[in-house]
Design a protein around this nucleic acid. Structure first.
Lengths: 343, 343
DNA sequence: TTGAAAGCGCTACCAC
DNA sequence: GTGGTAGCGCTTTCAA
């Protein structure tokens, strides 16, 4: 009824207040409160200022500071979707690393096809010092978006020819690992539900799939590969198309496409894993929610965010961080969806 | 290798630049560029300024503006987790509503138990004008967090005694709707996987469950209710405990607990829906990924974010928005997990 | 209808 | 070791 949530909100103390109460000049107060490295301040004075600031519950106004220094100590992170475990955990990693290094994170959730590029929006308005960018867009689109960036950036989960700083996962190794697991279980007819036809990660995974087959001495057959995209429906459609090939195992590019494929297998009366084993790439809680629970290859998505944020902050500090190699996959999480080949 | 992502970044033009090029005073340029309502500016002058601003690609520096006006036109939104469809879509709704009203959204992902409350952090540093708060914390914890808020706020998805402005979903009606569906299919032994013991939504859903039973003339039996919390494991444990009661149908508080329960039913050799029907509350893509696909009651989570943002902005404008009643559930989405009672 | 000027809160340079 | 002060880019009286 009343503005109960809007009580008084007394205005915050300013640096001038602290200085006055402590009996020093603003500039001195600024020096100590800012943690100036060249601390040419007497310990006594220092302590007094700190004490007053504490008592007054002083917080520097980041707007004023930013206006003055032309820095915000804030990183923008642009992701195409929030409710995607990959991006959610990349955000978490970036957030942790950023916080450790004194930066905040401004999360921007830009749905593909959003009118205005948030890359432009974030970077052109002095809100962030740098950008962490994940994108599902085509190279051309992303490139033109990035062209409008007025701050340094680091890409996550993809590369873009011409953009030197990217942090990616080793999808190829992950796919190979999944195939190896299946091959070790005796499977020979291993199908692959691929991602987008031209996506960076999709191509890498396909390559890893082939490497895994080769290592097991299994010939590659094109008709055992179908493009599933990144939706459950895509996974279902692709699986349906693959059924006539009678695979005994399936390597799905994502958890979502794995789920779609599993639904089709159930419908077709095929038992998992007795008739068909399924492996998905990436690990997230949803893997355990499927039936049967899905065997996955864990991917270091949080680490990706962490590394990307760290690189970006280095870049902002004027360093020239070296490109990092693709982050190797984590362990294979054996659950109930994989078993020995029996046919 | 090189700082390829850090080219020149020419400094942005300032208002002074625009004014100079247009041959007017800064104050005049400010008036027109800001869209001052009392536009006491000659059209000719106006157009000239606009044209110059356009040519120079001028963007007001939000830091400077914020410093001057003590407003940021930014709302903070605090959620306990990102990869939760409920919060993800609430964020989307809030973002859309905020954008329409000229506000940006600063997303803060505060994991429970995070050292510093992001409520305090966001609101005490002049970064946001107001806060949208979702929280899974206990009343006491949340209350003390909010006590440190220096800006107006609106709660989402829960109430807190003493905090007048909340936007919640009508979980009670949703639960009732789920039970009605099951009862209409002939089920009489309907179990309920409840949420947290004392949570606001959990209690509401339990109430709705009882109402639904009552409406169908089914007596309430306490032993058909188990607390499942909000994890798949919790759902599994609760379902396991309920099995001896031989329910023919289950109303799960969330999709996640429904998934856990379904796993247990599968393990127990019970067919879904032939032996046991399952309904989950909330709808999200994961419902279609489960096997069999889950019948759900859709909840207006995006609308919740939209309404909350709108209320908050009204509050900031000095209006006194009326509390809104719980948002009614959407349609029941019939999928494969429910069928007629056969025993 | 337009201009002049103060000042938001802070940092950083220079003087003492 | 500390103080004075200009000025970041903008909005907003107040004058003209």
């Amino acid at each position: 009824m009343t503005r109960g949530t809007t009580p008084s909100f007394p205005s915050r103390p300013t640096l001038a207040d602290v200085a006055r109460v402590a009996g020093v000049d603003m500039s001195t107060a600024s020096r100590v409160l800012r943690g100036d490295s060249a601390q040419r301040v007497r310990k006594e004075t220092r302590d007094r200022i700190l004490k007053v600031a504490e008592e007054l519950d002083y917080r520097a106004n980041p707007l004023a500071r930013g206006l003055r220094t032309a820095r915000t100590d804030t990183l923008g992170i642009v992701v195409p979707q929030l409710d995607n475990p990959v991006f959610a955990s990349a955000i978490r990693g970036a957030e942790l690393a950023a916080a450790e290094l004194g930066y905040s994170l401004l999360i921007s959730h830009r749905e593909p096809g959003a009118a205005a590029s948030s890359i432009a929006k974030l970077s052109q308005t002095n809100r962030v010092d740098g950008l962490l960018v994940a994108s599902l867009d085509d190279d051309e689109v992303l490139r033109s978006d990035l062209a409008s960036a007025r701050v340094p950036y680091v890409l996550m989960n993809r590369i873009l020819p011409g953009a030197p700083l990217s942090v990616v996962l080793d999808s190829r190794a992950a796919a190979r690992r999944g195939v190896e697991h299946l091959a070790a279980l005796g499977h020979r007819r291993i199908a692959h539900l691929a991602g987008r036809a031209q996506g960076f990660n999709a191509l890498e995974r396909l390559e890893g799939y082939r490497e895994g087959l080769a290592a097991a001495g299994i010939p590659y057959e094109e008709r055992l590969v179908a493009t599933a995209g990144y939706t459950a429906e895509g996974g279902a459609t692709a699986m349906r198309a693959l059924l006539p090939q009678k695979p005994t195992a399936v390597l799905a590019a994502t958890l979502v496409s794995a789920a779609g494929a599993m639904g089709v297998l159930h419908e077709a009366g095929l038992r998992i894993p007795e008739d068909v084993s399924v492996v998905g790439l990436h690990d997230a809680p949803v893997a355990a929610m499927l039936y049967p629970s899905l065997t996955t290859v864990m991917m270091p998505t949080e680490e990706m965010g962490r590394v990307a944020a760290t690189m970006l902050i280095r870049l902002l500090a004027g360093e020239h961080p070296e490109p990092v190699p693709p982050l190797p996959p984590g362990a294979l999480i054996g659950r109930a969806s994989t078993g020995p080949a029996s046919r």
